[in-house]
Design a protein around this nucleic acid. Structure first.
Lengths: 109, 109
DNA sequence: ATTATTGTTCGTATTTTTGCGAACAATAAA
DNA sequence: TTTATTGTTCGCAAAAATACGAACAATAAT
């Protein structure tokens, strides 16, 4: 029987920290929840949902994109944003592993 | 058959953002991984693992504690840090729900 | 009473993040 | 060619995060 992995490699730790950082702002969570509820996900649709300047929205999208969680493609003259499927699954697994660190035992203290 | 929940309430969004923010630093991830690997988890043990001043380590622990992810109890003259079990489960569920937003369908774009 | 041990808190400096409006770029329409 | 539409990038200001050493607090040991 395989033992469950009880740690994360350094590279994985850095990646989960990087993704967590991108998730660590209410507006960016709101953007992701909105993307989940929509078929259409142009920049303008996202901006319309949020009470802030378009430059600010653009910055938040850039951070989510730089973290690999979303991708954007130009559909001139608009830009369509979507979840980055592969990376989303990677993120899901990383966080699952992270939270799994403390489920196997009855905890250590 | 129950339909799977496909969104997060505002309060949940804020909580997951708050916890993600606390997770969004490599040192804090490293602390959690270390706590998972140890039975003993005194401040000094944590500090010994990390190449930084004790005041900095103390600050990172405070942020994890303020986010509810860990707790600290005094065992004079030491301080024992542990995962906050209940909140850890809450966090696990919040992140699971977040990542679950995009698994049911074949995605929207 | 001093001294040692264990951590936290304070004050400070540096860097990063957040947010805005203005300016810009790219295409399409008039 | 000018004008509109859609977003990004730039430059700035304010706020927050990061890290350090010094100072402090609480207890225990000498």
């Amino acid at each position: 029987m395989e033992t469950t992995k009880l740690t994360l490699q350094t590279a994985e730790q850095e990646m989960v920290a990087r993704m967590a950082k991108a998730l660590g702002h209410p507006t960016r969570i709101e953007i992701l929840v909105f993307l989940a509820s929509q078929d259409s996900c142009f920049f303008g649709d996202i901006h319309d949902e949020l009470p802030m300047a378009k430059s600010t929205v653009s910055q938040h999208l850039k951070e989510l994109k730089d973290a690999g969680l979303i991708q954007g493609e130009i559909e001139t003259p608009k830009v369509r944003y979507c979840i980055h499927k592969e990376n989303w699954e990677i993120a899901r697994k990383l966080f699952s592993d992270l939270f799994g660190l403390f489920e196997e035992t009855e905890m250590n203290c």
